[in-house]
Simulated scan of single mutants.
Amino acid sequence: MRLHRTLASSLLLAFAAPAFAATAAGPAVPAFVIDGGTRVTVKGATKLTMNCDLKNQGAFEPSAGSAVVMNGFLTPALTGVASFADLTIAKQSYASLGTNATVNGVLTLSSGQLSLAGHDLVAQNISGGSAASYVMTPDTLGRLVRTVGSFPSVVFPVGNASYDPVSVRTGTGVDDYRVAVMDAPPPNGLTPAVALTRAWAVSGSHAPGVNGDVRFSVQWNAGEQGASFDRSLGGSTSALAWRWNGTAWSPQTGVRRSDNGAYPAVDTLVSTLSGLWTLAGPGALLAADGDAAPAGLELAPVWPNPFRGAATLRYGVPKKMRVTIGVYSVQGQHVATLADGEREPGWHVARLQADRMANGVYFLRVQAGGEVRSSKLVVMR
């Protein structure tokens, strides 16, 4: 069923709380459409509850005290809506942004996720944030934006396949920070066995040093670190903070200051620099493509993941051998072939274009020399 409501030009639409609910029982996502030239005003104390797309092609004007509540099991998009008074996510799945947006009141994370889908979300007042409900940042573009001062720390409840939040506070002064988490570091990367499979983008708007030493704490789960990852502090194999400079990773000594010794793990990093950060052992940097062949078949984390347009994977082979790389649906159906031929010893790169792939979970399978490596992929638009 497709729910499509077209409103007449210049109509003021006011819903008496909590009267308006748009729902659908089938898997197709219906739409509440505000046509061009139409003005919709949601008065204060009104609750607009929706399990459908909200597509604004005209003017959507939420008054202070009003709320948009996204609920139900569908995966709707909020398109063309740049401003909310209050926004509540109370879903069995996720909703996604279709444009940069600001929540002027309270963003309430009750259940399910809000995917930024490549867009920025400004939300100064956030209620909730947990493994059950958080802001998803499925690529390198969209960030959660909040104002941060020297006390207290401001929590950014972000994640993708799992909840991996960041808390930030400045050394001095106030700044706007843009934060995202990625489910894999960039592919020109780090040895998986001694590294995390998460990377955090933490960027302020001021020049380095203006806000002093910025303290940010990152959280990850037990399954998001390599088998030989060393969480200790100060040892010869202890993990360091690594920063991405745009083309390669570089270790940052003295930045990693503490570890809580439990799971979910929480480590505190202190630096004057913004950027993309992860944790890995001191000798974690992988060789360039074609160099330093691994001892066996290796598959580095796919990046980004989840992704919208394209993802990159790095794989290494110990000697010249035939390599086959396939992508499969959760039902086991073949979707794409990324490689099928001989490769020289060393590291290689393959690209996956998701233009014709539907949203959902897929599996990557790499076969070479009798060995198999696999990884889960998530396409999210």
Rank of each mutant, 00 (worst) to 15 (best):
L273I: 00
A201L: 11
W200K: 06
T268F: 06
A195M: 04
V270F: 02
P251L: 11
V266G: 00
D230V: 09
M182T: 05
V266M: 12
N245C: 02
L285N: 04
L196N: 04
D291V: 01
Y263G: 00
L196H: 01
D259H: 10
Q252M: 14
N260E: 04
P306N: 06
G212I: 08
A180E: 04
A284S: 12
L286K: 01
T268P: 04
Y177W: 15
L285S: 11
E298N: 03
G189V: 03
L276W: 05
V194W: 07
G209V: 02
A288P: 01
T197M: 05
Q252L: 14
A199T: 07
M182Q: 14
P186A: 08
A184I: 01
A239L: 08
Y263M: 08
P294H: 04
D267A: 15
P282D: 11
S238K: 05
T237P: 01
G171N: 10
G173D: 10
F229H: 11
Q219W: 07
D175E: 14
W303A: 15
G309W: 01
D291M: 07
F216H: 15
A292D: 15
A280E: 09
W303N: 10
V202A: 05
R198V: 10
P186F: 05
D213M: 10
F216I: 02
G209W: 12
A222D: 12
G209N: 06
G261Y: 09
G296Q: 10
P282C: 10
W244Q: 06
A248R: 06
D291E: 14
V255W: 09
T172K: 15
D183K: 00
T237A: 13
A207W: 04
R231H: 09
T278D: 02
G246E: 03
P186W: 00
D230Y: 03
D291S: 12
G281W: 08
L285R: 15
A293K: 12
G212M: 04
S205E: 14
H206T: 14
R257P: 02
P306F: 02
S232N: 13
S232L: 12
Q252C: 06
N221M: 02
R256W: 13
W242F: 08
V194E: 15
G204M: 08
L269T: 09
G283K: 04
S258T: 15
L276M: 11
S271N: 12
G209Y: 10
A288F: 08
D213Y: 13
R178N: 07
T268G: 03
A311V: 09
A195W: 05
V179H: 10
A262L: 10
F229W: 15
R308N: 13
S250K: 02
G171Y: 07
N260M: 03
L269M: 09
D289Y: 13
A293F: 02
S232I: 00
W200M: 03
S271W: 10
N260K: 06
P187F: 08
A284Y: 13
A295D: 13
R178F: 13
D175C: 07
Y177P: 11
D183F: 00
P301T: 09
S258D: 10
D267I: 12
W200D: 00
V255C: 12
T172C: 07
P186E: 12
G246C: 02
S205V: 13
L190S: 07
N221P: 00
V194Q: 13
Q219G: 01
W249A: 05
S232A: 14
G189T: 15
